[in-house]
Structure formats: structure tokens, C-alpha cells
């Protein structure tokens, strides 16, 4: 009775279970090697470094569940940051007015991706590869090699914590959005549409699912999330540069796939992505503490991604 229930749970959620066990293992090993890992203040403090990747992981999960990919998000972060910083420092537009505009700019750039993917039926991989170059390039046109400052009193907002806790602002935003995205994917019609589109877009279309509309909304959402990340990053770094967030797409996609989302679409959970993201964060922080250079860390992340895919092939291949 109980064993059959466990088996059913395993069959349905094998990747999520595997990644949870890996996270516990990673935590125990790091805590044992480096006692700082057991200090909540230290952990929450480090977590602000990775918030943007954590946020991108949420929207990328939806994109991949729908059977697509968005490589341009990291370039959208840089481009939106460049737009905001330019409007502020060259045209004197008040910064507080620009903050709510960031998701709007990002959403527009994402909608452009969505248009090409949904209305012109072009593969999202190539479309977003092109806009990845295009958006990054436009950020470079705006800023060149220089850095534009954001207002000094805006820098460091991410250091503000909720009263009487260790929770920094970005962490609060991230936790809230985790819940929002989980509800969106697992509890709404939009989430159903996304999943069904990922399982079989043609069948979805013939069943009355507005596939094109769903995809455009989805890519717009993805861009808007990148816009949110952009303002958080500006607060953390205090300057806008064209090369911000470059290469993060590897971390983000690794987290999503490691969390059990099928790269072919149709299956995935926000829980899995969140746990996988935490796992990657611990592995990277661990390597950082051990003095492994950032350039070499990408090797470990790449290996982790391969391991994740091969594991999920093994566990789901038995059917």
C-alpha cells in the first residue's frame, strides 16, 4: 500500500526527488567543510548575488515547459539597464519613475521575440539567438565601453532587510514570485495552456487552445521578468554596463533542466526549478569559497547540466 504510493510518487516526480536529495547532500557536505554555510545570516547575505538568476529561472521554466527557449533574457537585462541609466543620466528623468517602466521595456522586447516565434512560426532558439545579439548590441550602442551611474541612494536597496529578519528585499521579491509562478503554472488556465502547448502544439491548437496568443504572452512575461532583474541588478552594482549578465543563460537553463523540466516541453514544476537553482547556488558558492576561478566554474555548471539531462533520460526512459 505505502510502497505502491511511494512508487507512484517516484514515477511522477523522480527528477524533483533526485534534485532534492542532491540539494540536501550538497548542503551537508558544504556545511561540514565550511561552517559558514550553517550561518543563516551568511547564507541570506550571499543569496542576493544570485537573485536575478533565481528570478530568470522561474520564467524560463514556463518557456521550456511550453517547448521553447529564450536565450535573449540576459541581453534584455543589459539593454533595459542601459535604457534606464541613459534616460536618467542624460535626460534627467527621475529614477523612481523609471523603475516601474523597466518591466514594461523588458516586456516589449520579449513581445518582439513572441511575435517572431508565434506569428511567423520561427524556431525560438534561432530567434532569441538573433535578438540576444541584437539587444546586447543595442545596449553597447547606447553605452559603449563606459559605465553609467545610477543614483547613489538607489544603490544598495538590495541590502535592506525586512525588520527583525535576515531577509533582504530581493529575497522577499523572489520568494513571492516563486509562489506566484507556481500558482500560474499549476493552478491557472494559462498554465494549462502552456503545458498543453508543450506536449503537442498542433493537438493543442485543434483542441481550441490559443497557442499563438499564449506564446506571445509567455515571451512578454519572460522579457518583463528580465526587466525586473535589470532594476535589481542596477541597485546591486550601482552602474549600467553593456556586458551585464552575460552568459547567465547557461546557469538559468541548467537550473530549469536540472529541476526536471523536459527540454522537449510539456513537463516541469516550479518546485523542481527552485530546488535546482538553490543547488547550483550552493555549488557555485562552494567553489567560490574554495577559490575556483569563475572561468573554470562554467565547466562544473556544464557538467551539472549534462548530468541532469542524462539522469532525466534514465528516469523517464523506462516508460
Amino acid at each position: 500500500m505505502i510502497s505502491s504510493r511511494i512508487r507512484r510518487l517516484w514515477n511522477a516526480y523522480a527528477p524533483e526527488i533526485v534534485v532534492t536529495i542532491l540539494l540536501i547532500l550538497a548542503f551537508v557536505i558544504s556545511g561540514w567543510r565550511e561552517p559558514r554555510f550553517l550561518d543563516a545570516a551568511y547564507l541570506f547575505d550571499r543569496s542576493t548575488l544570485y537573485t536575478e538568476i533565481g528570478l530568470l529561472t522561474l520564467s524560463m521554466t514556463l518557456i521550456i515547459v511550453a517547448g521553447h527557449i529564450d536565450l535573449s533574457v540576459t541581453s534584455i537585462i543589459a539593454f533595459v539597464g542601459a535604457i534606464i541609466a541613459t534616460l536618467y543620466s542624460r535626460y534627467g528623468i527621475p529614477f523612481w519613475l523609471l523603475i516601474p517602466l523597466a518591466p514594461v521595456f523588458g516586456g516589449f522586447l520579449g513581445a518582439v521575440n513572441g511575435y517572431f516565434v508565434a506569428r511567423r512560426n520561427l524556431p525560438s532558439l534561432v530567434v532569441t539567438l538573433a535578438t540576444m545579439a541584437l539587444y546586447r548590441g543595442m545596449a553597447q550602442i547606447l553605452l559603449g565601453d563606459s559605465s553609467l551611474m545610477t543614483p547613489p541612494d538607489y544603490t544598495g536597496i538590495e541590502r535592506v532587510t525586512l525588520p527583525h529578519t535576515y531577509l533582504h528585499t530581493p529575497l522577499v521579491i523572489w520568494i513571492t514570485l516563486c509562489l506566484v509562478f507556481a500558482a500560474l503554472l499549476h493552478r491557472t488556465v494559462f498554465g494549462r495552456y502552456i503545458t498543453v502547448t508543450g506536449v503537442n502544439p498542433e493537438a493543442a491548437l485543434y483542441s481550441g487552445v490559443p497557442v499563438a496568443q499564449t506564446l506571445i504572452r509567455l515571451f512578454t512575461l519572460s522579457g518583463a521578468m528580465a526587466g525586473v532583474c535589470s532594476v535589481l541588478l542596477l541597485s546591486r552594482l550601482g552602474v549600467a554596463r553593456y556586458d551585464h549578465a552575460r552568459g547567465w543563460e547557461l546557469d538559468v537553463i541548467t537550473a530549469v533542466v536540472l529541476g526536471g523540466t523536459s527540454i522537449f516541453g510539456g513537463r516541469g514544476t516550479i518546485y523542481g526549478s527552485v530546488v535546482a537553482f538553490l543547488l547550483i547556488t550552493i555549488v557555485q558558492t562552494g567553489m567560490g569559497v574554495a577559490g575556483v576561478k569563475a572561468e573554470i566554474q562554467v565547466t562544473a555548471i556544464g557538467l551539472l547540466l549534462l548530468l541532469a539531462v542524462l539522469l532525466s533520460r534514465l528516469t523517464t526512459g523506462r516508460k
Binding site: 541548467t254 556544464g302 557538467l303 549534462l306
Partner: peptide, 15 residues
Amino acid sequence: PPIVATLATLGIYRG
């Protein structure tokens, strides 16, 4: 899938 495999090796070979 090709995109995942080569994205992973992109990182691995670069490192």
C-alpha cells in the same frame, strides 16, 4: 537534445 548538449559543452570546453 542538441541545444542542451552543446550548451553544456560550450561551458565545459570554455572552462
